[in-house]
Structure formats: structure tokens, C-alpha cells
């Protein structure tokens, strides 16, 4: 059964349809990429799925249950996690603390226990920090654990967001341009990381402009253009589709897609 099923999503801003009739389904362990020119509606689609925007029509099913319109924190508890194209890190907290917030739902959170700092809180803190450090290690940021996240480079911040999202132990992970601002070495790290995440059975939905990365790791690709579905298929099918090249024509993606 698909762990994420999106059907016939539509949303408009000021009368302009940003997304229209988009639907797809993702299996556990699958890497499903969504590509398309700037302004195609990829981020908007993520915002609808993750509960930040309310769609004017369509359904979102998470592990078979209808979660349409639920707020982000409730969706997080149901196993949906994401990263952001425009960075959303807790810049005044350390890198480790950022990831520890990602463990929020795994932690017992009792106001009274926290105010009095009961021994159980300290014990849990140690466990949460250990988990956070392990995740930072996975994204290559172990050495940055105790520096303020606001001091990290753009690429490092991107990876910190991935670590924080993984900390929630999601079933579905939405990644919005994780490789943006990363050099080729960092991009390869992210490539491997996404592979490992999928191997664990997490469904990864990837939005990315780096066509080399997308073509290499995706199982299936959906191409959006002006809020509509253009093509869906394997990397091979998408690469060979003349419609896709046309959609990208005039965009830097066209050249990259042709080269990939």
C-alpha cells in the first residue's frame, strides 16, 4: 500500500491556479522526485501536503488515512516530515539542539517535570542528545554540534534540516531542494544519505533542480509545469520525453537534463 497518496490537488492564489489536478502515490522506500521549472508549483505542493496551505480541492492520504487539512504538527505525529527550500532553522539554538527539537514527538514533555527538572528529564535529555549527535554524524555535521545553527554555511544548514527531519523518525520525508547551495562533494553526500534513508523504508519525495542527482537516485519522477502534471515515469522515460525538454526550454534545466 502507498504510504503517501495525493489526489487531484488544486490551490489558487488570487484567482491564479498555482496547482491544478496533481496526484501521485509513493511507496515505502521509494525515492519519488518532483521536478519542473521555477514557479511550477513544487514548493506549493509540499506546503499543501505538509498542512501549511489548505488546498481548495483534493485529498492527501497518509498510510491510507485521510489527513487532508490537518495542521503540520499533527501530520508530524502521523509520520510526515519535511525540509524547506528557504531555510527554516532555529538559528539561535545549537546544531545539536536543532536536531533535538526534531525529537520532540519522541520525547515525554511534561511542563511540571521540566520546571522542576526532575531526574527523568535529565535522563531523557542525555538520550535525546545522543540520538541528535548520531544524526548529525550521518549528515557530516558532528563537529558542528555545539555551535549556533545561525553560524552554519548554507549547505550545512540544508543538511541540518535533513537531520532534524529524520530525527522525527518519519514514514514520509519531503525534501525541498536539499542540494541547493551544496558543492559537488556535499551533493554526493546528500545523494548517499537519501539512498540510505530510502533503504530504511522511508518514502522520500524529492524536489531538486540538480538533474544529475535526480536522474541518478530517483525511482520515479513527476514533472510539473505551471501547476499541472506534465509527465510521470522512470528517469529514463522522463529524460526521453520531448515534452519535458520543451518545458525546460530556455531554462538552465534543459541543458542539464540533456546532458544527464
Amino acid at each position: 500500500m502507498s504510504v503517501l497518496e495525493v489526489s487531484d490537488i488544486g490551490i489558487s492564489f488570487g484567482g491564479v491556479k498555482a496547482i491544478d489536478g496533481v496526484g501521485f502515490a509513493v511507496e515505502p522506500g521509494e525515492i519519488f522526485s518532483i521536478i519542473g521549472p521555477n514557479g511550477a508549483g513544487k514548493t506549493t505542493l509540499f506546503n499543501v501536503i505538509s498542512g501549511m496551505y489548505t488546498a481548495s480541492h483534493g485529498r492527501v492520504l497518509l498510510a491510507g488515512e485521510d489527513v487532508t487539512g490537518l495542521p503540520p504538527d499533527v501530520l508530524a505525529a502521523r509520520g510526515l516530515s519535511r525540509t524547506f527550500q528557504n531555510l527554516q532553522i532555529f538559528h539561535r539554538m545549537t546544531a545539536a539542539e536543532n536536531v533535538m527539537v526534531g525529537r520532540h514527538l519522541q520525547e515525554n514533555c511534561s511542563l511540571l517535570a521540566d520546571l522542576l527538572r526532575l531526574p527523568s528529564v535529565n535522563r531523557q535529555n542525555r538520550a535525546t542528545r545522543a540520538a541528535a549527535l548520531a544524526l548529525l554524524d550521518q549528515v557530516g555535521l558532528r563537529d558542528c554540534a555545539d555551535i549556533p545553527a545561525g553560524a552554519l554555511s548554507y549547505g550545512a544548514s540544508k543538511r541540518l534540516e535533513i537531520a532534524r527531519a529524520l530525527a522525527a523518525e518519519p514514514r514520509v520525508l519531503l525534501l525541498d531542494e536539499p542540494a541547493a547551495g551544496c558543492n559537488s562533494v556535499e551533493t554526493e553526500d546528500i545523494d548517499r544519505l537519501i539512498g540510505r534513508v530510502a533503504d530504511r523504508g522511508i518514502a522520500v519525495v524529492l524536489v531538486e533542480h540538480d538533474m544529475k542527482l535526480v536522474m541518478k537516485i530517483s525511482h520515479r519522477i513527476l514533472v510539473l509545469e505551471q501547476g499541472r502534471m506534465l509527465v510521470e515515469g522512470s528517469p529514463q522515460q522522463v529524460r526521453d520525453n520531448p515534452l519535458v525538454l520543451e518545458a525546460y526550454l530556455g531554462h538552465h534545466g534543459a541543458r542539464e537534463a540533456a546532458r544527464a
Partner: peptide, 12 residues
């Protein structure tokens, strides 16, 4: 305080 959006997505 730093990002309501990110906090909510983290389940807060």
C-alpha cells in the same frame, strides 16, 4: 521563537 513553521513541522 526562531521559526514557528519549522517548530510545527517538528511536531511542536
Amino acid at each position: 521563537h526562531d521559526s514557528e513553521t519549522a517548530a510545527r513541522v517538528a511536531g511542536v
